[in-house]
Design a protein around this nucleic acid. Structure first.
Length: 528
RNA sequence: GGGCCGGUAGCUCAACGGUAGAGCAGGGGCCUUUUAAGCCCUUGGUUGUGGGUUCGAGUCCCACCCGGCUCACCA
C-alpha cells in the first residue's frame, strides 16, 4: 500500500496535518518536498473518509540570521530581530521580510500545485496571547526542560537558564537576549552584545512579562506548543530534524513531559540534492523553488516528490536528464494507470502515485491517465524547428482532436520545454546551426558525400530555391542524380550545418537560413 | 561518534519475499522526395562483502566495506 494510504488507514478520529517553514532565506525546491508530502497525507486522509485539516505555519518570530538579503546598513540594525519585524527588501510591497519571502514568493508556488492549506503566522499567535499558557508552563517547568535537553540531547543548560527568548525593548532584537529569574509574572533579561556571533545586542537590561508577543519560546518548545495549541496529529519533518537525539526527539519529549500532550505522528523525509550535491542557496541557480516551477508543470513537480518513498534521497539535476526523464516516467505511470502495457517495472502503487500527482483531488483519475501527452523531448525538438505547427502535429500524432484537458497539458509542456531549452537543456538537446565554423563532424563524411555537398552548393547558387519545398525537392533530386541515396545525403547536410547525424526536415531548415550563408557553408563543407 | 539513505548492465536508475528489468550508450537492420526528431532486433549481471531466516532473498535479520547527506551551537 502507498505510504500515505497506509498512514491514513492507521489513524482514527479527525486529524490535523501541520507543516511549517522558517523563512530566513531564499526558499529552494527541497522545501517543497515537505509541502507536497503533507498535502498527499491530507488527501489520503480525506480519501479514506477521515476528517482532516491541513495547516501551514510560518515561524516568523525566529531571529533574522541570514544577512545575504540585507543591505549593509540594515545588517547591524536587523540581524537578530524577529523576521516579522524586519522590513521587506526594497521594491517589495510586503509588510515585512517574512511576508515577502514566504508570502509573496513561496506561497505562490502552492496554488498551481493545488495545495491549499490554512496559513497562519506564528508571530500572530504570540501577539494574540494564544501561546501564553504554553509560555507559562515552560517557565514553570524550566527544570524539566533542562532535564530533557540533558537527557535527550546531552545539552547542558545552566540552572539560571530559562526556555524563553525576550524581544529587547530597546533595540527590538530577539536573538541577542538572555532571560533569567522567572517570578511567575516577569523575567529579567539582558541584551548581550556578544550573545551570538551573527548579531550584536544593545546591552539593555530589564524585566518584562514574556506574554502577548513580548517573547517567544525557543524552537523546540515552540514546535511542541504549536502541536498542543493547534491539536496537530500528523507532522513530518526533514531528516536533519529527525536524527536521534535531535530536534524532533527533544520536541516530542517536551510535548509529553512539559505540555503533557501526545506529539503528532512523524513522517521523516529525505532531502533533495542538486546534481548529487546538497542544495546550496548561495549557488542560487536552479535551486529556488519558483525557478524549478517554471520548468516543471505542477503534476510533474508533485510527481517528483511522490514517486520516491519519503525517506529516499532525491537527486535533482536540472542540467542533466532529470527533467526529461521525469516527464517520461510520469507518462509511463499514466499509461500504466490507464491500463496500457508499458515497458519496465512499475512501482507497487503506481496508480496511487499517479492520482496524488494530479492537481486537485476531485479529478477523474482514469480520464487523466488516458489523456494524450506529448513526449517532452520530442516537443523540445519540435519547438526548435522553424515553421512547425505544433498543435497540428500533436493532433496528427494522437489521431484525433485534443480535448480541452489535453490542450492544456500541451500548452503547459510547451512552456516548460521552452524554459528548459533556455536554461538547462544540454547541448545535445539543442538544435543549433553552427554558424561560426564548419563542424568537425564533416571530416568524417566520405568522398561521395563531399561531392554531393559541392554539387548542391552549385545547384543552389544557380537555382536559388526559397521555400522549404523547393529546397527539399532540390536535395532529393541531387541525391538521386549522384546516386548517393537520401539517407547519406541528409546525413551530409546535418553534419555540415548542425554537426550531428540527424536533424529536422532539411529543406525547411535551409530555407530558414540566409541563402548566401547556406551556399557558402555547402562549399566550405565540401572542401573540408 | 550518533542518525538516515544508497551500492543492481558501460552510464542513470527500476523491481508487493516469487522467472533480475528499462532508458541511454554499444552492435545490427529498416528510407526514392520524409514524424531518421522515427521504428525493429540485439550484446550486456556472481544485485558491495560474509553469514543467517525461508520452499524461495536485490528485497527480511546480523556483521563488515565503500559513498553521500545529516546531527552533535542555534533555529
Amino acid at each position: 500500500m502507498y505510504w500515505a494510504d497506509e498512514l491514513a488507514a492507521s489513524v482514527s478520529g479527525p486529524q490535523v496535518v501541520n507543516d511549517s517553514k522558517s523563512p530566513s532565506g531564499t526558499v529552494h525546491v527541497g522545501s517543497l518536498r515537505g509541502v507536497v508530502l503533507h498535502d498527499a497525507i491530507h488527501r489520503a486522509l480525506l480519501g479514506a473518509g477521515v476528517p482532516s485539516t491541513f495547516l501551514y505555519g510560518v515561524d516568523d518570530m525566529d531571529a533574522m540570521d541570514s544577512q545575504a538579503k540585507l543591505t549593509p546598513d540594515a545588517i547591524d540594525k536587523y540581524m537578530g530581530a524577529p523576521l516579522s519585524r524586519v522590513p521587506a527588501p526594497e521594491g517589495s510591497t510586503a509588510a515585512n521580510y517574512a511576508r515577502h519571502f514566504v508570502g509573496e514568493i513561496f506561497f505562490r508556488t502552492f496554488e498551481p500545485l493545488g495545495i491549499k492549506p490554512e496559513f497562519y503566522w506564528v508571530s500572530e499567535l504570540y501577539a494574540a496571547g494564544k501561546l501564553d499558557s504554553y509560555v507559562k508552563l515552560a517557565l514553570d517547568r524550566a527544570d524539566r526542560v533542562r532535564d530533557i535537553y540533558m537527557r535527550v540531547s546531552h545539552v547542558d543548560r545552566p540552572e539560571i537558564w530559562l526556555p524563553i527568548q525576550v524581544i529587547c525593548e530597546q533595540c527590538g532584537k530577539i536573538g541577542t537576549t538572555y532571560a533569567t529569574d522567572w517570578d511567575g509574572a516577569t523575567v529579567a533579561y539582558q541584551c548581550k552584545p556578544d550573545m551570538v556571533s551573527w548579531a550584536r545586542g544593545c546591552g539593555h537590561e530589564g524585566r518584562v512579562a514574556p506574554m502577548g508577543g513580548q517573547a517567544k519560546l525557543p524552537w523546540n518548545l515552540e514546535w511542541a506548543a504549536k502541536w498542543g495549541l493547534l491539536g496537530v496529529t500528523v507532522e513530518g519533518c526533514g531528516k536533519d530534524l529527525a536524527t536521534a537525539g535531535g530536534s524532533r526527539d527533544r520536541s516530542d519529549a517536551i510535548s509529553r513531559e512539559v505540555f503533557e500532550v501526545e506529539p503528532p505522528r512523524n513522517v521523516t523525509y529525505e532531502f533533495l540534492n542538486i546534481g548529487g550535491k546538497k542544495m546550496s542557496t548561495s549557488k542560487g541557480q536552479g535551486a529556488a523553488a519558483h525557478t524549478i516551477a517554471e520548468v516543471l508543470p505542477p503534476e510533474q513537480l508533485r510527481f517528483l516528490f511522490l514517486r520516491p518513498r519519503p525517506n529516499q534521497v532525491i537527486d535533482f539535476d536540472p542540467e542533466g536528464d532529470t527533467i526529461p526523464r521525469l516527464f517520461d516516467e510520469f507518462d509511463r505511470i499514466a499509461a500504466a494507470t490507464a491500463g496500457r502495457e508499458v515497458k519496465g517495472e512499475l512501482p507497487a502503487d503506481h496508480e496511487r502515485v499517479f492520482a496524488y500527482s494530479l492537481v486537485g483531488s476531485g479529478r477523474d483519475v482514469a480520464a487523466a491517465a488516458a489523456a494524450f501527452r506529448p513526449a517532452f523531448a520530442h516537443l523540445a525538438l519540435l519547438l526548435q524547428i522553424p515553421g512547425v505547427d505544433i498543435a497540428d502535429r500533436m493532433q496528427a500524432e494522437k489521431g484525433a482532436p485534443l480535448t480541452e484537458f489535453e490542450a492544456a497539458v500541451l500548452a503547459e509542456r510547451i512552456a516548460a520545454a521552452r524554459a528548459w531549452l533556455e536554461s538547462y537543456a544540454p547541448d545535445r538537446a539543442r538544435l543549433a546551426v553552427r554558424r561560426d565554423a564548419v563542424p568537425e563532424e564533416v571530416t568524417a563524411l566520405d568522398e561521395a558525400q563531399h561531392s554531393y555537398l559541392a554539387a548542391l552548393a552549385e545547384a543552389a547558387a544557380d537555382e536559388k530555391p526559397v521555400s522549404g519545398d523547393a529546397w527539399q525537392t532540390l536535395i532529393f533530386r541531387l541525391a538521386t542524380e549522384t546516386e548517393l541515396g537520401a539517407g547519406r545525403a541528409f546525413g551530409a547536410l546535418y553534419a555540415a550545418f548542425l554537426g550531428r547525424s540527424n536533424g529536422p526536415r532539411a529543406g525547411w531548415l535551409l530555407a530558414s537560413l540566409e541563402p548566401d550563408f547556406v551556399v557558402e557553408r555547402l562549399r566550405a563543407a565540401a572542401r573540408a
